[in-house]
């Protein structure tokens, strides 16, 4: 079978991979900001919840988290009397998003704390509330700082989507396995998908770089 004929089924898998990446990255971003900011909160309940979430999802393996959500959660649900059987897509997006969100949280927290105290003093002098100071003054200055790390995390997330194939999600890695089982042509198929992942990673990196430059416009303004 000529390798070009592999491309069509693999592209279907690639499309699933892209969707997985997009959804889980969005979830990850939300969780990163929520828990990163939450970790800085004076409210000990919010802070505690954020710390627990971050420590658990950064301290355990992604595959363990994925398997737990897909295999173990339903059993916990049965014990509680609720149906917690997650379809592979939901389990996949959830595991990936929660995992990457925990790593992103540290990036968010670090960047916010890197904003100079002087800015907070100026905000206080002008009578901004602490919440206004965070959202209008600190965050806009922190976000450009976060972008390089976010770019790395996004590519990491893309790579991690391959693990979803292990719970039967029809992504690129899954499709590759199907083809390989049928045609026994390991070398060709794996080489193709390695390059496909590489290509997707390059596109993702380029997109993140564009995003990076648009949020950092004011930093490049010089006399």
């Amino acid at each position: 079978m000529h390798w070009v004929e592999f491309l069509k089924p693999l592209s279907e898998g690639a499309w699933v991979t892209i969707q997985l990446t997009v959804y889980s990255t969005i979830l990850g971003a939300v969780m990163a900001f929520a828990s990163g900011i939450g970790k800085l909160s004076p409210n000990w309940f919010i802070k505690g919840a954020s710390v627990v979430y971050i420590e658990i999802f950064r301290g355990t393996s992604l595959l363990v988290q994925l398997f737990w959500l897909y295999f173990a959660l339903p059993i916990a649900g049965d014990a509680l009397g609720i149906d917690l059987r997650l379809p592979p897509v939901v389990a996949g997006v959830l595991a990936l998003g929660l995992n990457i969100g925990a790593y992103g949280a540290e990036v968010v927290r670090g960047a916010i704390q890197a904003v100079s105290r002087n800015q907070y003093e100026a905000a206080r002098a002008l009578n901004f509330t602490p919440r206004q100071a965070l959202w209008r003054i600190a965050l806009p200055q922190a976000i450009p700082e976060m972008m390089p790390s976010f770019s790395n995390l996004a590519v990491q997330n893309l790579k991690d989507t391959a693990l979803a194939s292990l719970i039967s999600l029809s992504d690129l890695a899954f499709k590759a396995e199907q083809l390989r089982n049928f045609y026994q042509n390991s070398e060709t198929i794996y080489t193709i998908i390695l390059f496909m992942y590489f290509g997707m990673a390059l596109v993702l990196t380029a997109m993140m770089r564009i995003l990076e430059s648009s949020v950092g416009r004011w930093r490049r303004a010089r006399r």
Partner: peptide
């Protein structure tokens, strides 16, 4: 208060530096 290090908001234009607090506060 006027600060020794100015402490302007670098991500806002001059105009916005002046209007942000009057509008929000």
């Amino acid at each position: 208060m006027v600060f020794q290090q100015f402490n302007l908001f670098p991500h806002m234009t001059v105009l916005r530096n002046l209007t942000e607090a009057p509008r929000c506060v």
